[in-house]
Write a protein that binds this DNA or RNA. Structure first.
Lengths: 200, 200, 200, 200
DNA sequence: TATGAATGAGAATTCATTCAT
DNA sequence: TATGAATGAATTCTCATTCAT
């Protein structure tokens, strides 16, 4: 469990996350990370095997959290595909808006992982993708999503949510709640959601 | 003009573009760039003042091209906002699919520019953004775009187009023409385009 | 006594011996030693004061064994210098062939000892040298060794025996017994041994 | 050619040679080498790719010289195997006595080369070995070397010559000429040289 | 005798850049 | 506009060792 790690771990991961997000993996020196975390360079190496492992830990932890959020959201949602899609979009929007550093890093820095780490990351990403694919497929099966391009609209939904991390600033007056409302609406628009007519 | 520069220039920019896109700005050494371009390290410094200037040149050249493509597309389109939006989306999709390296770099590496260069880049990006904003605003004014969230749908359109650079592979069997058709359709869906009823 | 030391000791010395022999003292890290010995780094420091002390212990233990082997061999030999030389050569050949790691280390790594340790090592080495010198001198006195270069032939005998550690591989089909026979013969050749004519 | 290299090269190789011989490859830092050579650390990397390459260059240069010396000696010697063996022993003794640093390094540090470099080194060493093997075989064929152990006596000759580098000090009053005389004599003793009886 | 955490010094190497020509 | 040599600063990472328990 995360909570069982020594306290230095979290400060370290947080410092690395911020540095990587601000300057990019390659432009970040581990010295800066250690300094920001307030620990010695050697301590950093005591906790993690190196810069790359630090990156991997950040990405993995991010995946843990995102996955947990999505699972929780789906668990609360009923069986209706629209409701489930709403749940996923809300979880994604909240994650992107609340974890902007993490999201920026996920977007590009996976290229800096080694082969094995990258494979691990991709596997987890594919699993996340599948959640959306399944929901969209369900909606189509049930005839309530009419989009002629299920895969592309799914990609579009994810892309627009992911982009939030790049421009959203909580100081800007737009609440995350607002965001959620809008993006849920846009997502349903994209899949061309038509609610089932209630039985007379 | 580009064509008046010595031949080394283009090879250099191309090499730098590929390296930056593959490994990220910070993880790329100018030695690798020079080597990939097949020129000497010293020659590199005679063409460009340094690594950062190289990045700036790439981003600027990209902006030149994208802007030119958009302008050309708009010039051919008529005055109808839907038609104009289609033109912009097509230009963007084609650019993202055809210039994946450039697009990846634009996405994140502007953080590695210096203050002045970054300001310049942002100004140009804002201008591109405005093209989309204007078209969407026109469509709303004319009552043919019904989206309640014009700014968010504009962002969504750009985000989904931009994301193409991250996943699209020309070898994958999906032509750029296919892409254009789908993304134009999705974009019109996003702004909730309702064609004007033709006068009887 | 060796047998009274805790069990970790021997595993540790063996691991260090192998590492030092394979990579050299300077290229060996004590972490690797601890790992190879299957003990913790801290445990290593409880057995020995550090890397250098470990080296010293290895060299000293080797000297113990070699000296013991030589003494035993001489004890069994009679008073005849030829017989005694044979005994020493056999002991040396068996040691070099059986303790290749140790022998390689002795050859060069004494330079990595500290002043005091090195002096100790040299004293013991000189004692071993003297055993050979005495035997050769006896043979000369008794007129059965005719070499005009006693010191050089003694050096040659030791050099050829010592070199065994560098090239001999037990898997190679040559038994240690074969080796002993040959090297005894070569040693006697070097000192130009001429057996006393038996009294008529 | 060596002489065409920039002047820094030789100073560098010499400094590295001394350091490696004194402390061992693993215990030598390239900083010390650069300092001893009186050049900057960066300049070192300008000349050589790294520490290992430096070691390889030293070993290779040594092999060049030794081989050149042996070839010259053999060229001057006639066809008589005894004369040829004398020539090789003299060349070897002079090399070991005159190039003690180099000889010490050759003895053990080849383990610090990488796979490819080590293969190269071993190939050259095998060629040198073969020179001795050929001469001994010739002597046996011609019936003037009587040793029952040609391979072992060859090894013994090389071992005793090689060992010179470890103990010989020119300040000690023993000239290299003396050494040559003695080791030539010992070598002929080892192969049990019996001159052909001159025809009556 | 045991140990996991921690560390400062130093390791090899690479960096972007400058300079003399 | 060309270039090979050179460099100081910074890079990631490992080192032998110590310390608190």
């Amino acid at each position: 469990m995360d909570t069982m790690r020594p306290p230095g771990h979290q400060a370290l991961l947080e410092a690395a996350r911020q540095e990587f997000a601000e300057r990019g993996y390659g432009s970040t020196s581990i010295r800066e990370i250690a300094q920001r975390a307030g620990i010695s360079l050697s301590a950093l190496y005591h906790y993690y095997g190196g810069k790359q492992e630090l990156l991997h830990a950040i990405l993995d932890e991010g995946m843990d959290r995102y996955r947990r959020d999505c699972d929780a959201a789906l668990a609360q949602a009923g069986g209706d595909p629209a409701e489930r899609l709403e749940a996923l979009v809300e979880a994604t929007v909240r994650f992107r808006a609340g974890q902007r550093d993490r999201s920026s890093i996920e977007l590009t820095e996976h290229r800096s992982l080694n082969e094995e780490q990258r494979a691990h990351f991709r596997r987890r990403q594919a699993a996340a993708t599948r959640m959306f694919q399944d929901v969209v497929a369900d909606g189509l099966d049930q005839g309530i999503f009419l989009t002629p391009y299920p895969e592309d609209s799914r990609r579009a939904i994810l892309a627009m949510c992911n982009a939030i991390a790049q421009w959203y600033r909580p100081e800007g007056g737009l609440t995350v709640g607002d965001l959620v409302e809008r993006y849920v609406s846009l997502a349903l628009t994209l899949v061309e959601y038509r609610p089932r007519r209630p039985r007379p």
